[in-house]
Every structure is written in C-alpha cells, then in structure tokens.
Amino acid sequence: MEAHIRVNNLNVNYTSEHQALKGINVTIPKHQITVIIGPSGCGKTTLLKSLDRLLDLTDGVSISGEVLLDGVNIYAPDIDVTAVRKKAGLLPQRPFPLPMSIYDNVAYGMRIHNMRKGKDLDRAVQHYLELAGLWDEVKDRLHGPAVRLSVGQQQRLCLARGLAVEPEIILGDEPTSALDPLSAQHIEKRLLELKQDYTVVLVTHILRQAKRLADYVIFMYLGEVVECGPAHEVFENPRQERTRAYLQGLF
C-alpha cells in the first residue's frame, strides 16, 4: 500500500475551550477509497477539510501539526494555499453550483488556473461532464443556469467542476446526504470508477454506504482516531471496544 497523505499529530481548536481534533495520526492510501466514520460532532468533517486547508476560512481556528501530501507539509509557511486546494476536489454536503452557467461552472477552475482555452476548453468541459456522468443530461443546455439542475445533477456538476482542475484527491463530505437514493447511487458508482485514478476520502454517517465503498476505514470518536485500517479488518474484526459498539449501533 502506497501512502498518499500522512497526517502527523494534527490538533485543531475552534475556540480556546473546545478542541475539535486531538493529536490525529493517520495515513491515507493512494488510489483507494478511505472512509471516515463516527458519530456526529466527532470531527470527521474537520479532519476532511484540514486535508485541503479549507479550515483556514473558519474564524478563530488554530491548527498545529502537519499534513504531508506526497511528503510535502501543506501547513508549512512557504506553501501556496491555492496550489494545495487545486490538488483536491471537494464534494460538499449540499451541492453549491456557482452563480453561472453549467459550462462556466466546469470551466471555472480551468480558467482561473489558465489551463485551457477555446476548443480545448470545450473538449475538456465535455470530458469532465462525461466523467461525472452528467453529459447526456445537460449537453443541450450547457449555457443554461446551473441552479436549474436537480440537486442530484448539481452534485455531479460539482464533481465535474472539482475534477476539471486535475486533482489527485477527491474529498467527499457526506456527498450523498442531500440526495435521493437514485442520485446517491449514481454518485457512489462514479466514486468507485474514479478510484482507479484518484485518491478518494469520504465522510459518511451511513454505515452501509461505508461498507459498500470503503477500502480503508478511519473511525473517529470525540475528536480522536479510535481505530483505522483496511475495511475488512475494521468491519469484521474491530480491535477496539468502542469501534465494536459503534458498528453494532450502540451510539
């Protein structure tokens, strides 16, 4: 197993009295689906967002420790934050299409980073919409507003938008929680296909979804990592009592 992200002794404080993450040490394998599970409020989303430096945007947050992405600490002072964020695509809990057309949503990141122009851009937009499984549904209205899409379509649009900046990692923060079962299935299928080329990190509170998707599992409780390891080990043979209790639905 090749490590892609390594988190070393990461601590996150939102306010002085409340510590969100305490001394996290985990390794996230390359080109696999890693699922973070745990009861709500245990710091799953915080850990996920710390991998993309999206925590910086929260007011009054303090972070210590390091997150190594391919061996480079993304919290080092001489790091360009936008370059870090470009390396990971985010699927939020609720899809947020940007206030522009479907085409411009996908092209947004590529334009920002001056990656493609003209015909090349058109082809790229089509490619990523196909990759997200949305092309057939929107090819006739590419220049219509993105907000007109259904929520399920919007989430796939967000996926296409994230993929378009050629990231190595896809971060999903309960990406199916706002979707109907069919759209959720759609997204899950995409993620399973995408893990060939991408490292996927997923937060979910649905155990069955975790079992369906996970290659590697991180179980968190009250801001700490209780147990992590390959999915079959954690699910079938948990080492910790708390993990066992959670898996049996005792929380």
């Binding site: 992405l69 480079v72 790091i79 360009d80 370059a83 390396k87 920002i112």
Partner: peptide, 10 residues
Amino acid sequence: MKKRLNRQTL
C-alpha cells in the same frame, strides 16, 4: 506547491 510570485498572487 511552493509560493511563487505570479499574476494571481499579485
């Protein structure tokens, strides 16, 4: 990923 002086940062 190092910081560079480019149009964006400027």
